[in-house]
Design a protein around this nucleic acid. Sequence first.
DNA 1: GATGAATGAGTGTTCATTCAT
DNA 2: TATGAATGAACACTCATTCAT
Lengths: 200, 200, 200, 200
Amino acid sequence: MNKTKEEILDAALNLFSQKGFSTVSIRDICSVVNIKESTVYYHFQNKEAILNEILKQFENHSESLIAKMSSAFPSLMSTPQAFDNLLPKIMNQYIDNYLADPFCNKVIRILSIDHLNNPKVHQLYSYWLFEKPLEIQQFVFSVFNNAGIISCDDPAFAAEKFYAPFFFCLSRYLISDELTEEKIEKFKESIFKHIKEYFR
Amino acid sequence: MNKTKEEILDAALNLFSQKGFSTVSIRDICSVVNIKESTVYYHFQNKEAILNEILKQFENHSESLIAKMSSAFPSLMSTPQAFDNLLPKIMNQYIDNYLADPFCNKVIRILSIDHLNNPKVHQLYSYWLFEKPLEIQQFVFSVFNNAGIISCDDPAFAAEKFYAPFFFCLSRYLISDELTEEKIEKFKESIFKHIKEYFR
Amino acid sequence: MNKTKEEILDAALNLFSQKGFSTVSIRDICSVVNIKESTVYYHFQNKEAILNEILKQFENHSESLIAKMSSAFPSLMSTPQAFDNLLPKIMNQYIDNYLADPFCNKVIRILSIDHLNNPKVHQLYSYWLFEKPLEIQQFVFSVFNNAGIISCDDPAFAAEKFYAPFFFCLSRYLISDELTEEKIEKFKESIFKHIKEYFR
Amino acid sequence: MNKTKEEILDAALNLFSQKGFSTVSIRDICSVVNIKESTVYYHFQNKEAILNEILKQFENHSESLIAKMSSAFPSLMSTPQAFDNLLPKIMNQYIDNYLADPFCNKVIRILSIDHLNNPKVHQLYSYWLFEKPLEIQQFVFSVFNNAGIISCDDPAFAAEKFYAPFFFCLSRYLISDELTEEKIEKFKESIFKHIKEYFR
DNA sequence: GATGAATGAGTGTTCATTCAT
DNA sequence: TATGAATGAACACTCATTCAT
């Protein structure tokens, strides 16, 4: 992709994730990238198109991450030791490449700021922060149950119980302020406590 | 308070909670209340003052609710039966008068939309959605622990574990879309399941 | 006159003389007097009426000062010693009760700020800062000439020559900044030097 | 410079010099230039920037005029005849290119209208209407004195005496009303009378 | 690829003024 | 006497967008 276009996307991502889509002006973006406003319209049809491009990249990233993580799934089920060894690895992957990944984290902020205002954002917000993670975990728990690894008669509730602390800690530590290494550590510490407690 | 001023506050509350503070214009508010823009400036110094008034009312409401709920606390501890009887009542009070209360619910939406953009909102967001509830629950759990009602060696974690589903379900059911009776029912159903599971 | 009305006039005088008529708002005046804007309209028909009242008072003050000073004129002509004695007295009177008088000084500032913008002000500005003083002095010089006290074949030019330093020092010392005792002293020092030089 | 930008500056100059900076609206300027208000903000950061540009041009003009006039100074001192020949030429240059120059004259009006209200304008007003001319003339008189051309033991007072009629006639003839050829003639007639009288 | 110039619609806000009380 | 409430017109300024170059 063109360098200027990438710079615009990058600046827009940063600004949108700090102040929300409608509060950021084309001028704001241009003064970061150091280009004229009309230049933006060479690369994008309009302001919304910038957001759409960001969201599209986010979806691609997220889907490919899911694909990657799913491939680790069979090994997870092989033996109890494999489970104990792999679970933290998978969780770390999920955190490092998604919740705390600089790009994804910023998009998640955008989703949480703008979801009430923008239907398209709302749909992504619902999907990626609620539906999809719950669906995956529900699936995992029901497979585990069927395999006799855990006993779980309500996989939907199990998923919700497992995911709630993730969402809570995400909101509390990862998108409440600037994202720092410190915050990520706090998040991980907290979330692994919850996981440990969960499988106690 | 003056009728027009109240109507302005009411319209502003609705609009701010739907689109966020900066996306709502004075014109938007006026076209709801059916007054001229200059009239707004008779009642409020500026746009921000409208938000501040709303936030002030929210704080007053919240604080008085806490006071009211605290008074029920001693009876909660008297006998195990009292606990079992009272807990749902208190939870319902918390939900009906706070999380799902039309006024509070809208303010909570505002907090969640604008917290990244507005420092004052951010402070209230952190305080009322994280610090305060966790502080209260941590206190409750440590008292319960001391009284031998429950055994809990890490009240801070216990509070987080108890509150996480609240926050999750709040985000999922109560501030993700328009607030309907149906959504409130879904929320309650889910949250009482979590509570039951918690005290299992 | 009513106390509130006087306070309005006083506040308006101060503000108009600092920032000019059109730059001062009714609000500005009210916040000094500590009344509501609508109250102003009980005492004055509109904003302009406040200015007119001030200008009327100024004209009354000026005219009565001229009358008073004219009465000293005959004695001025009696003997050369009387002239030498009386001239500084008259000049001091002119300065203390007019150019440097707190009320008149403020009005003169208003005239000099607003004369280009407001025809009525322009007329007073021309009259009281050019026509009238030159007319009086021209008259004085021609009488003095006829009486043989001084020899002066062009009283109009003599008046202009005599008055020019007044106007210059007025602008430089008395209406260029806040009016202080120090500034008045500087003005007097300078102007008496010019007078002495004139009659050398 | 861009044509539209120049037209804005020109219209602003005319309007500011007639009504003062704060009384002129961007709309006023636009309706003269026949552009939309937003266009003004393409060329200038804000209203004040228009004034600043005008003032900057005035300072450049004034400084280069002083430089040009200073170069004529040595010849002025060579012989008494040179003095008699050159003085009117220099005075005419001063009047035609400064006091009565259409651009400068308008700026001087702005200075005299807005100096009490605007600190930056006040500084230019003091400098260009009092400090600088007096400084130059004081310098000239002291050099002339040292060269034996005139005898003058108080050059500061001599400068004030020489300059006072300029300032007076400037106010009376050149910035009191619209600037016409007639007014300029009146001004010159008067000022040359004063100069002749001065060197009598 | 990029920009200089322009714009129409909209933003928050201030203003002098009115009028019923 | 004074004010609470309201307003229409104006204000400086910002916005996303267009289009010729």
